[in-house]
């Protein structure tokens, strides 16, 4: 295993699935759904998920074989930045407005991914303008305006 990678073992995946299904059965369904018929299917699915998780864990422990998923730290940094920028964009769009936020989003994301200023500025102006005009003028649909637009 390279030092530049971090590893997620298969056992963690099934462990997470098992914990999630236990939470569903004992916490989320009892608090989130009124008792009676509406609980039937969420319970059936959660129990099925629990069974798959537990059987898979037992199988891993018996076989002593677990697949590993590698995440390169340097590469994950770029993906992480992209996710963070997209997260901020998704959340703030309704408060700031689609047009302005899309310009900022394209500019910041392209720069963080290593693109030059020229293409970043060009795309950040052209794309939101085209989408904005298409949706508002042609399709008569409106985007979240926010404090700007």
């Amino acid at each position: 295993m390279e030092k530049s990678n971090f590893v997620v073992k298969e056992v963690y995946v099934y462990g997470f699935i098992t914990i999630l299904s236990v939470l569903m059965i004992f916490l989320i369904i009892p608090t989130g759904i009124q008792s009676g018929q509406p609980r039937l299917f969420p319970y059936i699915y959660s129990v099925a998920l629990l069974l798959v998780g537990v059987i898979s864990l037992i199988r891993i422990f018996v076989k002593k074989q677990s697949e590993q998923y590698q995440f390169n730290k340097k590469v994950s940094k770029f993906v992480g930045y992209s996710i963070l920028i997209y997260f901020v964009y998704s959340l703030s769009i309704q408060y700031i407005g689609f047009f302005v936020m899309s310009i900022l989003f394209i500019l910041v994301l392209m720069r963080s991914l290593g693109e030059g200023w020229k293409i970043a500025i060009l795309l950040s102006v052209i794309l939101p303008s085209c989408i904005y005009l298409l949706f508002t003028k042609v399709l008569a649909l409106y985007f979240p305006a926010g404090v700007l637009f």
């Binding site: 997209y86 689609f98 394209i106 994301l109 290593g114 795309l123 989408i131 399709l139």
Partner: peptide, 21 residues
Amino acid sequence: PTVLAPIILVLCVAGTYGYSQ
């Protein structure tokens, strides 16, 4: 992909909001 990624993500947002408002 560094050029395509922002284009597609903005289109995802526009498409979703355009449908459901």
